[in-house]
Design a protein around this nucleic acid. Structure first.
Length: 988
RNA sequence: GGUCCAUUGGCGCAGUUGGCUAGCGCGCUUGCAUGACACGCAAGAGGUCACUGGUUCAAAUCCAGUAUGGACCACCA
């Protein structure tokens, strides 16, 4: 056995992440550390990645989300669980289609409709392939230990099969239906949106007071509206039955201006009366409400109650049109056809003004729904759409009952048997988010799932219209392959047949087509396939067709925990819960939901591309390293609050950093720019370019001159470097061959250090079990920095070279620290591990550490039955207090740092000092340790009521200078005192 | 309008069932090129825990109210 195993030059002096990370990733790939094996008997721990949209590269929020998942996965893997972390991406229907359409317009000046559907989808597919590859590379570069062989995409064959089957079954069970409703229509992207895809924005608008003449010429009523342009589709005026004016108007009609339509006055208690104190609308109300069932959701409801005509006066792009259900367009009204909503509003108000029918126009601020994609106001628009009946107890009710009893009063008590029922087993961390989940389900409305897009899962419905007199003859009825529904339209005299074809029956599809059926053009809402993610990724329902998914569902569903952001509790968490329970006998897709913090910029704003305040994890990895990023993100995951990430702009060429501020760019956007405290050419250049680039286009692909980073990651870089260096130092001190260490061979400092790793392991386990990531990070920091580096390494310096037992203890401690740090800082620990493996660590009884070439696959330290003398530990802690006190006294009295002084103590303190003499001498700069109770010379200090005396603190010359210094200080203080005294005397 | 969250030294945050002197990182001050690390070491300054009242032997912590900030839901008269 060689004397010195580690060559001093083989480990560089400081940690350079960029030189090491790629090699480590390759090592993990080769060892296939992420592989989850369904046939493995060990208990499972599984996580499904919230699949990021393929619209753009990952941002720092994704990095946070993935880091936390990876910490949990690596920790469980080391603890011996059979782990599966399933990666993947989401096709993100409308979002992806929108960015691709935008790019085609910019680069090729082409619209979607300039392509065949298949052609266009192929272009989107190209985009998807590019970004999916980028995203997966990003995941890998931040150290994610997913099961890469099972990477899924929401439009993979395996996922498509699940979508087909889910749709089929729900259609069969009448949980999916066709309905003519007002939907949230996006007039730019030309698609319906779900309620939660609508963003409310405050808009400074106007309240228009319009006079509607009574048909009999006996006067008029004044209606108040914010949307005068919809008056073309008015089919009634409503008044509250309690309103005193209601009675004399009863039975009368209105002649609608411009159109000339005669419309009834209906009585409905939805109408707010002016002066009704409680309702804020009362201040603006006239008591008369124009009713436009085709263009307002509330009016739609009134229309249903009073059986009113539904007159749609707009085309799908929001322009005024008589082609979509407006039959009585007058010649007067024709002038408005083709105008946009906005232009029509102006023109119609002009008409009312010209005809003296405008009573008033008041400024009015209100919030208006906007499309979360195109950002234009939503148009409530009448159309035929597909809905999921989430209001059915089988879906919404089941999801609600999943909530754990301690988080939701209405939850059924947990079953006594060990059987998993799903009821009351869903637990949110932090617990308050259970309330978000609960109130969402208590106010559910059916879910509109059809989208008028090309990118997505096409709805598996084939349609044919037949005469109402014709017999509905359908050759496939009753077969396992199809199910159908019909819709009768008495007015048109038609029956529409909707046939849903189960997946894998191409012959039936062809037969339908030759029979005159046409497939529904629309695709499903992205969240429909996302809702099936826990099932589809694991091969539900037909594992036979996808052999690599065999056994996954049985082994890994329910998954252990879902880590996600609070913004998708309703969009995603709820729907996964519903569908998983519905298709899997009530079992849940996951038992725990951990809601990770949201990252904001230093000013508390959401990060976004258009603000220019986004942070790309790749930039952080290049400036700080992946471990640094992971450590910092773990540390700021406190669970209670959102986190602010102060952003620094750094110029990659010069390395200069700038503080950002928000300025108006030339396009009018608020964008981030460097503060020009001392305007240099460089600041100006970056500022201008930054503003231009970010302001010019949201999807700008050019790299700005400056890169966003944050000094918040410095703590992580320092931490990783500290580990690197301390490990290097420790290993360079190993010179003796391996030896087994028994308790009797340990010095007090070794016993103390072992007690610290026991303590840290327990605390870490507890913190991670409770998803207290910040506590975990803090625990690691204290262990590595405070305990190991500040105390242990310093304390053993005098003895380590000679003491072979201590060398083995040091190696064992380092080995344990390596393992404990690994889930949070996998790269630097894995890199050190290969050096550590070159040394034979020996054995310390009570600490179980296996031998593995790859740290990621090594075991979590099992510290069991190690006997550490509590008195020895306590005595080391007492020594720490003594050292601290002496250091403080030395510093405050100006002793030269490298001077060795004498200390005189008595009683138990002397015994303590004598026992730890070498350590005390090294840590506190002590020369002689003397025993004595009463010392005349020297400086007395108090420690726990005992007097300790320091002496020999200065040589003659130093003593002289020190005296002079003190004299000066006394003189200056006396001067101050006299000054104060004089002032007091003068004032009194 | 409804629900929820936050307010702790200059900055960013911990403080889980009330209980030793309220912690941590950055920054700041003083000193240090010490044979692991200046991405470092040692010592230090800095907080009436937003405000008002209450419960208690004891409140940053529990209760009520006020102020400020934020998030979500509802709402196009």
């Amino acid at each position: 056995m060689s004397e010195q195993v580690i060559d001093r030059d083989s480990i560089p002096k400081s940690y350079a992440p960029s030189e090491i990370e790629a090699g480590i990733i390759a090592k993990w790939d080769e060892a296939n550390i992420g592989h989850g094996d369904p046939s493995n008997e060990k208990s499972q721990f599984s996580i499904l990645i919230p699949p990021p949209n393929v619209t753009a590269p990952l941002h720092i929020g994704h990095a946070l989300n993935s880091t936390l998942q990876d910490v949990l996965i690596r920790w469980h893997r080391m603890r011996g669980f059979n782990t599966l972390w399933m990666p993947g991406t989401d096709h993100a229907g409308i979002a992806t289609q929108t960015v691709v359409e935008k790019r085609l317009m910019q680069q090729e000046k082409k619209k979607r409709t300039d392509f065949e559907r298949g052609e266009f989808v192929a272009r989107v597919q190209e985009w998807k392939d590019e970004y999916e590859a980028t995203i997966l590379r990003q995941f890998k570069s931040l150290g994610a230990s997913c099961d890469w062989d099972r990477t899924r995409f929401t439009m993979d064959p395996v996922c498509t099969a699940a979508v087909r089957e889910a749709f089929f079954k729900m259609f069969q069970d009448d949980l999916i239906y066709r309905g003519k409703r007002l939907v949230n229509w996006d007039p730019v992207t030309l698609t319906a949106l779900a309620d939660d895809e609508v963003e409310m924005k405050e808009v400074a608008g106007h309240m228009y007071y319009l006079r509607y003449p009574l048909e009999d010429g006996s006067g008029f009523v004044t209606v108040a509206t914010t949307r005068p342009e919809t008056m073309l589709g008015d089919s009634a005026v409503a008044v509250n039955p309690e309103d005193p004016r209601a009675e004399e108007l009863r039975g009368k009609s209105i002649r609608l201006p411009i159109v000339g339509r005669v419309i009834p006055i209906v009585e409905d208690d939805y109408v707010v009366m002016p002066g009704d104190g409680d309702d804020p609308k009362a201040a603006f109300a006239t008591g008369f409400l124009k009713v436009t069932p085709a263009h307002d959701p509330n009016d739609w409801e009134i229309g249903l109650r009073h059986n009113l005509e539904v007159i749609n006066v707009m085309a799908s792009d929001g322009s005024i049109s008589s082609n979509y259900g407006w039959d009585d367009c007058s010649s007067e009204a024709e002038q408005y056809l083709g105008l946009s909503r906005e232009d029509a509003r102006v023109a119609i108000i002009d008409w009312f003004k010209a005809n003296d029918l405008v009573e008033d126009i008041k400024p009015y601020d209100h919030s208006v729904g906007h499309s979360y994609r195109s950002h234009v106001p939503i148009e409530p628009y009448l159309s035929d759409q597909w809905y999921v009946r989430v209001t059915d107890d089988k879906l919404g009710g089941e999801a609600l009952r999943a909530l754990a009893a301690e988080q939701y009063e209405g939850s059924p008590p947990k079953r006594e048997s060990g059987e998993q029922s799903g009821d009351g087993e869903l637990r949110f961390t932090p617990a308050r988010y259970a309330k978000t989940f609960q109130s969402w389900h208590e106010n559910l409305r059916d879910w509109c799932i059809s989208r008028q897009l090309w990118w997505g899962h096409q709805i598996p419905i084939w349609t044919k219209e037949i005469s109402i007199d014709a017999e509905v003859l359908f050759p496939y009825q009753g077969e396992d392959s199809t199910t159908f529904a019909t819709q009768h339209d008495e007015a048109e005299g038609t029956i529409t047949i909707y046939v849903c074809v189960r997946g894998g029956h191409d012959d039936v599809e062809q037969a339908l087509v030759s029979d005159g059926f046409v497939r529904d053009e629309d695709v499903l809402d992205t969240w429909f396939s996302s809702a099936l993610w826990p099932l589809s990724t694991m091969g539900w329902p037909t594992p036979v067709n996808f052999p690599d998914t065999e056994g996954l569902l049985e082994k890994f569903n329910p998954t252990s925990v879902l880590v996600t952001g609070r913004d998708i509790i309703t969009l995603w968490v709820s729907r996964m819960t519903m569908l998983n329970r519905y298709f899997q006998n009530g079992t849940l897709p996951f038992n725990d939901v951990f809601i990770n913090p949201m990252i904001q910029d230093g000013f508390g704003q959401r990060m976004s591309k258009s603000l220019g305040n986004g942070v790309d994890p790749r930039d952080i990895i290049s400036t700080h390293g992946a471990d640094a990023m992971r450590y910092a993100l773990t540390q700021l995951s406190t669970g209670t609050q959102d986190v602010r990430l102060t952003i620094d702009l750094i110029c990659p060429h010069s390395g200069k950093t700038f503080e950002p501020e928000y300025v108006k760019s030339q396009t009018g956007h608020e964008v981030m720019a460097p503060i020009q405290t001392s305007p240099s050419d460089e600041t100006k250049k970056i500022s201008t370019l930054y503003g231009l680039l970010i302001g010019a286009s949201e999807d700008s692909e050019e790299t700005p001159l400056a890169v966003n980073t944050s000094s918040r990651f410095d703590v992580g870089r320092n931490f990783a470097n500290k580990f690197w260096n301390s490990a290097r130092f420790a290993m360079l001190n190993i010179s003796s061959p391996a030896v087994n260490v028994s308790n009797a061979d340990l010095l007090p400092v070794d016993v103390w250090m072992l007690s610290r790793i026991v303590h840290a392991t327990e605390k870490l386990d507890e913190a991670l079990s409770d998803y207290q990531f910040n506590v975990a990070a803090e625990t690691l920091y204290d262990l590595l920095w405070r305990d190991f580096c500040d105390w242990y390494l310093e304390a053993i310096k005098p003895t380590i070279k000679e003491n072979e037992y201590q060398q083995r203890t040091l190696l064992t401690v380092l080995n344990v620290i390596c393992r404990l740090l690994h889930p949070v800082c996998p790269f630097v620990t894995e890199a050190m591990w290969s050096h550590l493996c070159e040394l034979d660590s020996g054995i310390i009884e009570g600490i179980e550490l296996d031998d593995k070439d790859v740290l990621a696959l090594a075991n979590w330290p099992v510290i069991d039955g190690i006997e550490l003398d509590a008195q020895v530990i306590a005595s080391f802690e007492a020594l720490q207090a003594l050292v601290t006190a002496i250091r403080g006294a030395r510093a405050s009295s100006g002793v030269r740092p490298n001077r060795r002084i004498d200390v005189t103590l008595s009683g138990y303190l002397h015994a303590l000092a004598a026992k730890h003499d070498v350590t005390l001498q090294a840590l506190a700069g002590i020369d002689n340790i003397c025993e004595g109770a009463d010392v005349k010379d020297g400086m007395p200090i108090q420690i726990e009521g005992q007097t300790v005396c320091l002496s020999n603190m200065f040589d003659a010359e130093e003593a002289h200078t020190q005296m002079e210094k003190l004299d000066e200080e006394i003189a200056s203080l006396e001067k101050k005192i006299n000054g104060m005294k004089n002032r007091l005397n003068n004032e009194s």
